[in-house]
Design a protein around this nucleic acid. Sequence first.
DNA 1: CCTTGAATTGAACATGCGTTCAGATAGGGT
DNA 2: ACCCTATCTGAACGCATGTTCAATTCAAGG
Lengths: 196, 196
Amino acid sequence: MARTQGSHAGTTGPKVRDAALRLFARHGFAAVSMRQIAREVGVQAGALYLYTPDKQTLLFELMRDHLEDLLAGWSAPEGGAAVQLEHFARHHIAYHLDRPDLVFIAYMELRNLSPENFAVIEGLRRDYEDRLEAILRAGVAEGVFDVPDTKLATMAVISMLTGVTTWFRDGGRLSRGDVESIYWDMVRKAVMSGGV
Amino acid sequence: MARTQGSHAGTTGPKVRDAALRLFARHGFAAVSMRQIAREVGVQAGALYLYTPDKQTLLFELMRDHLEDLLAGWSAPEGGAAVQLEHFARHHIAYHLDRPDLVFIAYMELRNLSPENFAVIEGLRRDYEDRLEAILRAGVAEGVFDVPDTKLATMAVISMLTGVTTWFRDGGRLSRGDVESIYWDMVRKAVMSGGV
DNA sequence: CCTTGAATTGAACATGCGTTCAGATAGGGT
DNA sequence: ACCCTATCTGAACGCATGTTCAATTCAAGG
């Protein structure tokens, strides 16, 4: 106890990121001070600068790592466009429900990034959207999807799926599996050919 | 010219709201100072307090008026659930595309509201969601909609429609009318019975 | 022309901000 | 047993914050 200095703890770095993530998600990047983050970690504000060059980089790295994880966590399975779309939709929901705070700040704090950092994050986001659009285009070419504009459909599907984080809470009426299935069903009907 | 004081202009009030709206949308509530708003209006910071009791109320009133407008601007037309849903979807998109800044802050700045103000805004938002859910429930009762959970479908539809503000820009490939029609088509197919 | 009072200024208040850095501390390697 | 060095403290820097208020300005009414 009371080991306040000189400790080679090695755990402070992750704790700084965790605290920053939680506080940024709860109060917003601009509303959180370095002193608040430090208090949460149990350290003085100056010590944070051993783990990040500045506050902005703390935000940027959270967002970048999140999007790189999202991209790394999904790859197109074998099969037709319909199979790929189902896989994409279910993975998107599962991933987002597992990381509500990261998803939240990645969508909310874009405007607090420097122009250079914004460009990086925007590029990663576009990569992700492009994957979905490629599936939709393939489905149109196969004749199984009927969407007049794949870019619009991409944005519509992503908005709908991401929106799940705004209302879903574990322990409610529906399980994660239920939610995945129902969302996938709506996506499927919305883009499939031969509908009502 | 150079009429700097004592003027009974009567236009400063709206200018304060306009400047606050624009700046909050661009940089976020917490990142905008009263002095920045004042500079935009062409006035000293102290003068703002003739038009708002504090910064928080400035945000709250923007959000409240926005949601009250949204609620006042739509009422269910005569007809079945399908007709009502189309009307709702088109109105939602048109309204949101007309007021991107207000929509943006109403979704992004909820966490910067005091608990009392948050409760008011949350109530208005729920009123709006309830209208859509009522349509979906009516459609299920009529047998024209097939959704396993009306609350989930409500959130999914609202997320999808609201997402249009994140990418649509006037003068692009698609007109507002195009976008309304394509979104409505996706919503229709997603909730209608007898689909693929 | 003078008075009135709404509109606005400009300075002040206490507090907090991000960031830097010299100095203190103590665990691990020798 | 000792030193090295990664780790952390605590104070300081200059500047910005939201808000208040006495003093000032000037259009309008009598």
